[in-house]
Amino acid sequence: MLTDFNFRVILEYMPLFLEGLKHTVFIAIIALVLALITGIIACACRISRFKILRYPVITYIEIIRSTPLLVQIYFFYFGLPTLGVSVPEIQTGIIALMLNSGAYIAEIIRAGIKSVDQGQIEAGLSSGLNYVQRMRFIILPQAFGVTIPPLLGQAIVLVKDTALLSLISVAELTRSGQTLTSERFMPTEAFLTVAFFYMCIYFGLKTLADWSQKKLIFREAY
């Protein structure tokens, strides 16, 4: 099955793979930071008292959650030029990933805030803290511990999602596998190597997520 697995080709194409890996990590980090910002803003609007902030954000989250990421990527990739905006594919991809992950992160943070016991909020109220103080001193510190593990889970999903950008010809990891396949026709070598690199990132993040689960969940439990 793997008897004629050609390591020499992999070595020859290693610079291409490493370049792709670099792009994947770079895109994932930028998209994650932007998505965190989007998510925090969206969550703040989502739990706000004002309908004018809440309803648009609910619509945004529901639209993102019920359509595939690939359709969202194509929507921006084919849609932005018709609006007269032409940006490079990589930026189109990052915008799509940011909006997609942002919606999920908003829900994760909201779940974290909701997980704080109602009695805590009442205790804060009766201590005479106002809304901002309650958020800052009581709710957010406790929500933080619950939020980190699922956020790392979302980071794993985000790294895997960057693979879809290969379909709009961004030169990331999966794309380098496609390049090797089309130049030498060696799909086995190409895609197993690509899979190997993704697995490395996955295990790194998974270990971090499991560790934080053990470390941080206890903090809100005492």
């Binding site: 379909l167 596998g177 993704y198």
Partner: peptide, 12 residues
């Protein structure tokens, strides 16, 4: 199955 993107799995 969880550690690699679905596109890569389809290609495989």
């Amino acid at each position: 199955a969880r550690g690699t993107p679905f596109v890569v799995q389809i290609f495989i």
